[in-house]
């Protein structure tokens, strides 16, 4: 474990807490893409299949459970909770996210570290996570002004993988046999997808104005 990875995990956890706060405090999921939340639930379920078989550390197991439970709870909230469900705008959240699932799984069948069930699902989860934010970014562009908590949620979610890139550089420089190409390349693509959001987020922070993504 290094400071970059710990900061990355804490930023990821913070993004989830901010989203939970938004949904709980406002009893609304306006501006939140249900499809991105569903994709993240699939990402965690596919990535942590070894939750009960490979024990790495208490921290690792605890965080995996938190990520799986929170992503499922958020999807449940948006799909089932009567107050929150009413605020879901399905006419704006129209990204065909099942195509992202299919493409990621297909890619994982060809590009993986080992042709085993766990490794293919792990690669699938890495590729899917890289594109999981797309429905949310499309929704933000369509829904005009973005409320603060939703903007902060997306910012922290994008920042966490950026910190992981620093972690991979650090590990590459300090650990002789560290190679994690699938996660590294995918992580760079994932962070790059946030580039324009980060730009407009910075502008809104600098001008102390409302975050607005151009349509």
């Amino acid at each position: 474990m290094n400071i970059f990875r710990l900061a990355g995990d804490m930023t990821h956890l913070l993004s989830i807490l901010v989203l939970l706060l938004k949904i709980y405090a406002t009893k609304s999921c306006s501006g939140v893409s249900r499809k991105t939340q569903e994709l993240y639930a699939i990402v965690f379920l596919a990535r942590y299949l070894d939750l009960f078989t490979d024990f790495i550390s208490v921290y690792n197991t605890f965080m995996k459970i938190v990520f799986i439970a929170s992503s499922l709870a958020i999807v449940w909230c948006i799909r089932v909770h009567p107050m929150v469900k009413r605020s879901y705008d399905k006419d704006l959240d129209t990204f065909r996210h099942y195509l992202l699932v299919a493409a990621s799984f297909l890619l994982a069948l060809f590009l993986h570290e080992k042709f085993t069930f766990l490794e293919i699902f792990w690669a699938f989860s890495i590729y899917l996570e890289a594109v999981a934010i797309l429905p949310q970014l499309v929704l933000l562009q369509r829904s005009g002004n973005v409320d603060n908590l939703t903007g902060q949620y997306v910012f922290f979610l994008g920042a966490y993988r950026g910190l992981y890139i620093l972690n991979w550089i650090y590990r590459y420089l300090t650990e002789p046999r560290f190679t994690r190409w699938i996660a590294c390349v995918s992580g760079v693509v994932q962070t790059a997808l946030y580039a324009d959001f980060f730009y407009y987020y910075f502008i809104s922070w600098k001008n102390n104005s409302k975050l607005k993504l151009p349509a």
């Binding site: 965080m63 990520f67 570290e113 080992k114 490794e119 046999r177």
Partner: peptide, 10 residues
């Protein structure tokens, strides 16, 4: 040692 195939990252 062998390639660390164990996924120690989240």
């Amino acid at each position: 040692g062998p390639l660390s195939s164990t996924k120690d990252e989240l």
